[in-house]
């Protein structure tokens, strides 16, 4: 029995130019509740810019983003801040607040943006750190954490805001190979727990196991979409399959 699909996030016809160059060219996609979609494609293909435009960190030149039916384009400045709260963003290079320890990294937005009291915010922060397996690192500062731990703190920080959608911008690309697994495990747990997510990644094997839809982007456009097994089958002759074959050749996995 399938529940009727509820779109949480709808991206309609986004276009964006940066420095006179067209980076996003009429991109549309829909994320239903509990879905994980994976963006793949060559660097410079527009994956990061797409995620940043969805989050309104860059204002798109054309097009609109709807979160549970509410249009971002029609929101004023104040409401955009509230809109961003509901979308969790994970960056390639973590962007933890360097002057705060792990638990305060998670707690600060709860306190300042959501207005929680300090004790309640810290309690929630510790619960989220526990969820990503870092309960014992709560009082360490970013400079004292490994890359994988930093990325898990940043995931805890995003989760604490109770986001409706999480956007992950190559969350393992800045990590040493031996630290990638711990972050992917956390993402896999989230996916199994029903978190709605859009993730840009080069971890094709991971994508195959967890997602039902891969989106291949190149030159600012969505070129192909489909189930991983169809899209990435060597016989499919898709651009995505060719790209993944090249990645595998280079990286050996």
């Amino acid at each position: 029995m399938n529940a009727p699909a509820q779109p949480v996030l709808e991206v309609r016809n986004l276009s964006k130019s940066l420095g006179g160059k067209l980076i996003l060219d009429d991109v549309s996609l829909t994320l239903n509740k509990g879905e994980l979609k994976v963006l793949i494609g060559p660097s410079g293909g527009g994956k990061s810019t797409l995620l940043q435009c969805v989050h309104y960190l860059h204002r798109p030149d054309r097009g609109d983003v709807f979160l549970e039916g509410r249009s971002a384009a029609e929101m004023g400045r104040r409401n955009i801040c509230a809109f961003r709260q509901e979308i969790g963003m994970i960056f390639q290079d973590f962007n933890l607040f360097d002057h705060l320890d792990a638990e305060n990294n998670v707690a600060i937005a709860l306190r300042k943006v959501k207005g929680l009291a300090k004790a309640a915010a810290l309690a929630r922060a510790r619960a989220e750190l526990d969820r990503v397996g870092l309960a014992d690192k709560a009082d360490l500062f970013p400079a004292q954490l490994s890359g994988g731990q930093k990325q898990r703190v940043s995931i805890a920080r995003a989760l604490a805001m109770d986001p409706k959608v999480m956007l992950l911008d190559e969350p393992t690309s800045a990590l040493d190979p031996d630290l990638i697994g711990e972050v992917l495990n956390v993402v896999a747990d989230l996916a199994r727990g029903g978190m709605t997510m859009l993730m840009a990644t080069h971890q094709i094997g991971f994508a195959r196991r967890l997602t039902r839809e891969i989106i291949f982007m190149e030159n600012g456009r969505i070129i192909e979409t489909g189930r991983p097994d169809d899209l990435l089958a060597p016989a499919s002759e898709s651009r995505a399959a060719a790209f993944c074959a090249k990645l595998t050749e280079l990286l050996g996995h």
């Binding site: 961003r84 963003m89 002057h99 600060i108």
Partner: peptide
């Protein structure tokens, strides 16, 4: 990235300034 992270969490510019920029 510090500015981007703050904006992504829903901080206004003033909140980013007082809570993230000033202490650093």
């Amino acid at each position: 990235g510090q500015f981007a992270a703050a904006r992504a969490l829903g901080f206004t510019q003033a909140q980013t300034f007082w809570n993230i920029i000033v202490p650093q």
